[in-house]
Design a protein around this nucleic acid. Structure first.
Length: 269
DNA sequence: ATGGTGGTCCTACCA
């Protein structure tokens, strides 16, 4: 059997409900993880996804900011959600995915803090929060590794760690999302947890790979000043199962788009 | 070197 897991920072699930439904219809992933749903749990547009063939839904939202969700065609069982940096700010949700045949998978969906504009934790507490969040994720990943390697970690990690994850490595060295301290922290998290970067396994450097283009670029497609902020990682036991990946760049050109596009990895289990 | 756009929810904050 194959299992396709997708992730997308949707920047308001209510405003862009039609875009999510279009993606589900066209790409038909088995599981879709969303970030920045910006939707309180009581108002999550659950029935639209049920009608679209995704009846298994978990969400963790709040008013105005953040928010994560998992939509699935396969049965889900809620797993423990993390409270990082002591904040109940809806930046992580986890689920066990239970295929009809075969063992289950643990899916962790993260929305890492963006970190503000100034890459200095003294001048900018948001940057400190981002680094602290990554440090707590690293501790968590080390503990998880010991007991569960059939795991997948996806989400908007808000860091483009490799040279060809950005349009210009040199121009972005002091720009939050590509500073050396963040890139090192993300790669340390990856290494500590034993995670495999599935998208880079299939599209190795020096190929340019982007999942985000700023709203502030008037001609995003021609300028192509993208960054790879969104990621799909798998635990070591799943590495041999990595089969294919897709990044739907076209979604950046849809009407009223998110600034992120959906990406997906198919596992042959 | 600077400012550029978009979402939420009412005034500024976040990305």
């Amino acid at each position: 059997m194959t299992l396709t897991i997708a992730t997308w920072n949707i920047n308001s699930v209510r405003l862009r409900l039609d875009l999510v439904l279009r993606y589900l219809s066209e790409a038909a992933p088995d599981v879709l993880c969303l970030q920045e749903t910006k939707c309180p749990d009581a108002e999550f547009p659950r029935s639209a996804f049920v009608k679209a063939g995704y009846p298994h839904i978990l969400h963790r939202g709040m008013k105005g900011y953040n928010g994560v969700a998992i939509l699935s065609r396969l049965p889900l069982a809620a797993a423990e959600n993390l409270t990082l940096c002591g904040r109940e700010d809806a930046r992580h949700i986890a689920a066990e995915v239970r295929p009809a045949d075969g063992p289950s998978l643990l899916v962790h969906n993260f929305y890492v803090p963006a970190g503000g504009d100034i890459p200095d934790r003294i001048e900018n507490p948001k940057f400190g929060h981002k680094l602290d969040f990554l440090a707590e994720m690293t501790d968590w990943a080390e503990r998880l590794r010991a007991r569960h390697d059939r795991a997948v970690l996806v989400g908007d990690l808000n860091i483009a760690p490799l040279v060809h994850d950005v349009w210009s490595h040199k121009a972005l060295l002091k720009v939050v999302s590509h500073t050396p301290i963040e890139c090192e922290a993300l790669l340390h998290l990856q290494d500590s947890g034993g995670w495999i970067d599935a998208v880079r396994c299939l599209n190795p450097e020096p190929e340019k790979v982007y999942t985000w283009w700023s709203y502030r670029s008037p001609d995003w497609n021609a300028a192509d000043k993208g960054r790879r902020l969104d990621h799909i990682w798998v635990g070591p036991a799943l590495k041999p199962a990595i089969a294919s990946s897709s990044i739907l760049r076209a979604a950046r050109g849809w009407e009223r788009p998110s600034d992120h596009v959906p990406l997906a990895v198919t596992l042959a289990l």
